[in-house]
Structures are given as structure tokens and as C-alpha cells.
Design a protein around this nucleic acid. Sequence first.
DNA 1: ACCTGAACACCGTTCAAGT
DNA 2: ACCTGAACACCGTTCAAGT
Lengths: 195, 195
Amino acid sequence: VAEKYHHGNLRAVLIEEGVKLVEERGVNALTLREIGDRIGVSRTAPYRHFGEKADLLAAIREAGFSAFADSLEAARDAAGADFTARFEAVGLAYLRFSEEHRAYFEVMFGAGCVRNGTAEDPAGRRAFEVLKGLIREGQAMGAFRAGDPNMMARVVWAMSHGIAVLRFETDYSAEGAGTRFLQFAARILREGLGV
Amino acid sequence: VAEKYHHGNLRAVLIEEGVKLVEERGVNALTLREIGDRIGVSRTAPYRHFGEKADLLAAIREAGFSAFADSLEAARDAAGADFTARFEAVGLAYLRFSEEHRAYFEVMFGAGCVRNGTAEDPAGRRAFEVLKGLIREGQAMGAFRAGDPNMMARVVWAMSHGIAVLRFETDYSAEGAGTRFLQFAARILREGLGV
DNA sequence: ACCTGAACACCGTTCAAGT
DNA sequence: ACCTGAACACCGTTCAAGT
């Protein structure tokens, strides 16, 4: 039974179980000992793969940013050709990710992590590039004014992140007050960035 | 020496020392035991005033929201009559608070706290009212379009919060890239909300 | 009322061993 | 290489006492 961890996949299992634990009871309940117990491994086994607890959190963080960037790219690509639709789709994807991957989101942006900053993570940069690319699209088609795409993308990122973190509405997935507010916010951004 | 805590101010001292600890080493380093040691009181003394650790954090949070609302109001009142100046002053105050009161900010919005949500805190609502009042000012003088002041204030709050949390620039207090970005973001918001 | 010391059930982390 | 058990220095929290 414990034999399956003798093949080098313990690391992945530790990450997976860690995410589950955070999902269930928050990042403060993440405990190397409990993870070990849950997957049937000794308390010190995790130290084979992670020098300390913070390193496991960093690995979860990395996986989270990677999934995050994937989500934004997928939403953009699935939205078709209409620019406004693409813009809103990516914003919605940001919010959806924060809802559907609470654990990742908490570890990615939580205070528990020492090494913060999305710019330090390759996948974090990839996610940012989705926003920046969208700004460039808008500029190319004349919907957005000229200006530094970095600054403009940061404004969009900050607004999305603020909405995700403050969570004014409880649900941004279903049709309702949440999606209405999101469209409202997206319109203000588009008009503020507009020519 | 310990006598000074026999007059009912232990509660306040606990909060104060807790804030210091968070400032120095982050919210995860906040420990009832260490606070007790630091102020020269037994390990169980804090339990006279706070049923559990989370209650001390909640008290710090409350004090933080109160100081936060004070900051925003003071910035608005000190900004004079020009609407754009008032709008930017409050945004800047939001960012400054997050820098100068790192500990408060971390506890107020951190994942460690169970009872989140600014709307549940009276001072949190007071801070929100500053933004909402500013929206109404803008509407009254014809700078902002008609629309639900609640929704519009949320957009401003979200943007401010996102910038504060993501901390693209390291310093928003001094003159430099930080303040330039802030003015850029404020302009986009004003134009997005404009008539 | 407010404070104390001892105790319990947890942590992260280390280390000497085991296969 | 990968895993284990015992151990150390920490936590939060409780409880029977002390003044």
C-alpha cells in the first residue's frame, strides 16, 4: 500500500493532498504531519522532497500559477473574435478561478507565503501576458488608447484581483448580481482605457 | 512592574504588542505565548481578555479598520475643494495605509482571519462610505455619470485594494514610479466613471 | 477579578537508524 | 534512495489553584 510512494511520485501526492487540506480547512490548517497521516506515510517522509513546510507551499503556489495562466489563456481562446467578449471572458476567468480553486488562490496570494509577487513566478508572468496581450489587441483595433501596455494591464489586473479578494458578491459563476457587477466593472475599465 | 496590568489595561497592551509582533515578523508569528512573555505576563493571562487567539486577531482587525477609516476621512478632508484632488487623495491614503500599517492591513484582509468581509465591520463600512460619498460628490458636480453609487464605489475600492495587495511598485509614498502609476490608475477610473 | 504553574494534545524539524 | 521512531523546542488551550 505504501509501496506506491516508492516510485518517485510522493512529491506529487504531497502537493495534491496539501491542496485538498487547504481547500477543506484553509492554509493555516496545512500541516506536514496531517498530510503524512492522510496519505499513509511517516511524518518525516515529506522532508525527502521538501526541505521545509514553506517549500511545499511554494510548490503548491507554482502549480496554482500554472493552472491560473492556463485558465486565462483558455478563456481568451474560447471567447471568439469579438474584443469586448474576449476582454470580459478573461476577467470572468480570473474571478472563476478564485472561486473554483480557492486553495490555490489562497496559497498564491496569501500572507502565509514569504516569497510573494506574481512577477517572480514564470506562470505568473504568463498570466500577466494574457492581460497585456489583450491590451495590445485593444490598441491595435482602436478600442484602447495609446499608452504603456504594462501600466494598462496592471490596472486591469488590480481591478480583477480586488474584486476577487474582496468578494462583494458570493457567487460570480452563476447568472445574477455577481455577473452584473462584473460586467459593470468591465465596462468602466473599457471606457477608462478607451480612446 | 506587572502591577500596571492590574488596572484593566492589559487588553489594550495585548492588542498593541500583537500589532508590533505582526509588524516585525508577520501574522503567522503572532503567538499568545510570546506576547505574554514580551509584556511580562503569564501565558494564560491573555485568556482573561480573549477567549481564544482568533478573538485577539479580531480585536486587532477592528482597531485596524477604525484607523483605516480615520485615514481615509482625514485625507479627504485635508484635500481641499477640488474634486480630482479629493479623489486622488483618498486613493493615495488607501495605499499609504497599506504601507504604513502593514500589520493592521495583514490582519484586516489576511487569510488567517475567519470572519472576513469589510461590510461586517462598522469601521469598514465607514471607510466604504468615504468612497461612496466621493462618488456622490462627483455625480453632483457632473464629473461622474449617473448610476448606483454602491457599484461605482465598489469598483474604486476594488482597484485600490488590488493595487495595494499586488504591490507592483515597492513604494507609493515617495515621489516616483509608484505615484505615477497611482495617478495613471486614478485617471482611468475617473474617465471610466465619467459622463 | 485577575493572575499563575502544570498539563494535554498538537506543531515543525532533526537525527540516528533501518531497507 | 527512500522511509521510520524517538526526541527537542515550540504552539493553543484548559484547569486547579493562588492573591
